[in-house]
Design a protein around this nucleic acid. Structure first.
Length: 688
DNA sequence: CCCCCCCC
């Protein structure tokens, strides 16, 4: 009964389909899942009657005709091998009673109908929304929205004797039935007027399709004919159907994001590029234009507008750098064209937001990507910094957002966005795709993929503005971003709280190349390196900043600083302290500098230098006294190379004597979450 | 062919 050829597997390899879920940008409180109980589609009142199939619909669809809501029978379902996709995909064998087609796919948002048992073999469906896509030489029908018209078991056999369509959507002359009933596209009375045929646009010959009058493929726009673009000649493909294996296609999509032009210069060469995000009914994809294409199209493309885009190269998207819901990304090539589209755009979605209330950011996991809307309560000035890591200069600006959850959060803007931001008159700021960071508690950081809108004309924005003007600006609010809230500069125990054993097991600091990772811990100092703890430093002040680089003692009260390239009469003592910290799980050697070292040794660098010169015994006692003290520490760690060997260096960023109230509360919580009951005699209540 | 998103 169900005819499953070996091509099932082939198709599953060539075909990819993505869900409309936004993967990789799912905070902890928003876990996508398939609902467990889904109501079965409402049935017609006369539930025992079986509607007629739309005979011939599948052939028409494969020829490009638009058949309105055809009624089809499901003859088979096959779950495809899950290729790292977040959701199962089903291939459907469908029949219209006259023809059957084994190259149909069920959009994943329809999966619930299979899971709840309503979409079963032999059932009848109405395809409310579908597309027919040409993938290589195959016609693939994607069923976006179907209603199941029969109850399970109501129909238990194949209706009619359908002829299987060829993979390319054609039918062989020997088994073609009732061809007269199949109208030519141009004569069709359903759907929009179709394009005229041209012999030049039938590229694939008719080897497998002798009955050419019926079986000619639809005209396909050829980008080789410069300036020949005619939207009416074009078969528009859904973004979700694009794969690297197709050469010629056109999408009709809205630009939801456009990056600045960025320049690069590395070992592989130099150049410049911009990228944009494209959205249609079926999905989204990022497109990048390099060099000539960047110059050609940067000014053509406007955010929010619709374009036909043709013939880019597709390659696997690097999910590390994109939160877009697509396995692929596009690269412009010479033959790519981007043509503004002024047609009706009602079916092309506009950018959508999935706003998270500021209050709820406290529960969002670090590095998740969220959309936020808030009133800009304050905008600090833009400042210029130099990255320690890359030595590149960049601009940043912190702004403070508040919403009607009466919570505030800092959002950091970067680069051009930071420079041009205008926070005057408390604008509504909408930001799509910003990163949740644990800096100073909870804060937000814009990404290059962030879309920022100021005072957008949206109902929620107007209502937020109204709230702020009427009550918000004088309301009692609380900020999630504050020093010390979670791992702040005051050293209070903070976010990313780890035991030393966890830090090692998790290889903290090893993953992100050269970029420090921060963590907090409570530990004892068990051993200090007292030799080489001091160095003589350059005391020159340049631009208000001390040089502090190590100087060479010339022996005649003269010191040489290579950094400043100068001879000095004096120096200042500075401390670089190495010590080992331990908790019940492990121990770690860490480094700390001047300020934190002075806290730990309870001496200033100058005092310690004097002891070093004049009182060896006193110097040693300073280190003895510092041993076996218990601290709350904030550390950063990153991998560094020491001749071929990779080691993680841990640096103390802040240190305060342990807060035992906090510490015992954490221990009690840990014990309880491990399922251990706290005996009553410990009067837990007094601790919590 | 980029892939930086920086601050502690």
């Amino acid at each position: 009964m169900v005819r499953l050829g070996s091509s099932w597997q082939l198709l599953s390899l060539a075909f990819t389909f993505r869900t409309s879920e936004f993967r990789n940008r799912v905070p902890a409180y928003q876990i996508p899942s398939i609902p467990r109980s889904i109501p079965i589609d409402p049935l017609p009142k006369s539930s025992m009657s079986v509607p007629s199939l739309s005979e011939g619909a599948l052939l028409k669809i494969c020829q490009g005709d638009n058949v309105d809501k055809p009624i089809l029978q499901v003859l088979g379902l096959k779950k495809l091998a899950n290729q790292n996709s977040s959701s199962d995909r089903y291939r459907v064998f469908v029949s219209d009673g006259q023809y059957s087609n084994s190259f149909s796919m069920l959009a994943t948002q329809m999966n619930d109908k299979i899971i709840n048992g309503s979409l079963v073999n032999f059932c009848l469906i109405r395809a409310n929304n579908y597309v027919c896509n040409k993938s290589d030489n195959r016609k693939v029908i994607i069923l976006y929205d179907v209603d199941v018209l029969t109850q399970p078991g109501q129909v238990s056999s194949t209706i009619g004797e359908p002829t299987t369509l060829n993979p390319d959507g054609t039918v062989n002359s020997t088994n073609a039935k009732k061809p007269a009933s199949v109208k030519r596209a141009a004569e069709s009375d359903v759907g929009p007027p179709m394009a005229k045929r041209s012999p030049l646009t039938t590229p694939n010959g008719n080897q497998s399709a002798p009955k050419s009058s019926i079986l000619d493929p639809r005209p396909v726009y050829s980008s080789s004919g410069a300036g020949s673009f005619d939207p009416s000649q074009v078969s528009v493909h859904p973004i979700a159907s694009l794969t690297p294996y197709q050469n010629k296609w056109t999408i009709k999509a809205r630009v939801t994001h456009k990056s600045d032009i960025r320049r690069w210069n590395n070992s592989r060469g130099e150049g410049h590029l911009f990228s944009m995000d494209l959205l249609d009914e079926s999905g989204e994809i990022r497109a990048t234009a390099f060099k000539e294409q960047c110059d050609k199209y940067y000014n053509v493309v406007e955010v929010g507008k619709l374009y036909y885009v043709t013939s880019c190269s597709l390659k696997a998207a690097n999910k590390q750098y994109s939160t877009l819901n697509n396995e692929y990304e596009m690269t412009f090539r010479d033959s790519t064209e981007v043509i503004p589209c002024n047609e009706d755009a009602s079916n092309i979605p506009t950018i959508t937001f999935n706003f998270v209330k500021i209050k709820d950011l406290a529960a969002a996991s670090k590095d998740s990507v969220v959309d936020v809307m808030g009133i800009c309560k304050e905008a600090l000035d833009a400042t210029t910094l130099t990255s320690q890591r890359t030595q590149k200069e960049f601009t940043k600006r912190d702004i403070r957002l508040v919403d009607n959850s009466c919570n505030e959060v800092n959002l950091t803007l970067w680069g051009q966005t930071a420079e041009t931001f205008d926070g005057a008159n408390n604008p509504v700021v909408v930001v799509k795709n910003c990163k949740v960071s644990d800096y100073n508690g909870v804060s937000l950081s814009a990404l290059s993929s962030s879309v920022i809108q100021i005072n957008p004309d949206m109902p929620q924005a107007h209502s937020l503005k109204g709230w702020f003007e009427s009550e918000g600006q004088s309301a009692q609010t609380q900020s999630l971003t504050q020093l010390g809230a979670r791992g702040g500069a005051d050293g209070s125990i903070g976010s990313n709280l780890k035991t030393l054993g966890e830090v090692k097991i998790e290889n903290l600091g090893m993953s992100s190349e050269g970029k420090p990772e921060f963590y907090s811990t409570s530990a004892y100092i068990v051993m200090l390196q007292k030799d080489r703890a001091l160095y003589k430093a350059c005391n020159r002040v340049n631009d208000g900043k001390a040089c502090n680089k190590k100087v060479v003692d010339q022996g005649n009260d003269q010191y040489r600083c290579e950094k400043c390239n100068s001879q000095l009469d004096g120096f200042t003592w500075r401390i670089v302290l190495s010590f080992s910290i331990a908790d019940s799980t492990d121990n770690t050697w860490v480094t700390c500098f001047q300020e934190q070292a002075e806290t730990i040794l309870n001496k200033t660098a100058e005092e310690l230098g004097a002891l070093y010169d004049q009182d060896q015994d006193g110097y040693n006692k300073v280190f003895q006294a510092a041993t076996f003290k218990h601290y709350d520490l904030r550390l950063s760690c990153k991998a560094e190379h020491y001749n071929d060997e990779q080691k993680v260096r841990h640096t103390v960023r802040s240190v305060v004597p342990i807060n035992y109230d906090d510490y015992k509360q954490r221990l009690i919580k840990d014990l309880e979450s491990a399922g251990i009951e706290i005996p009553d005699k410990l009067s837990k209540g007094s601790y919590l």
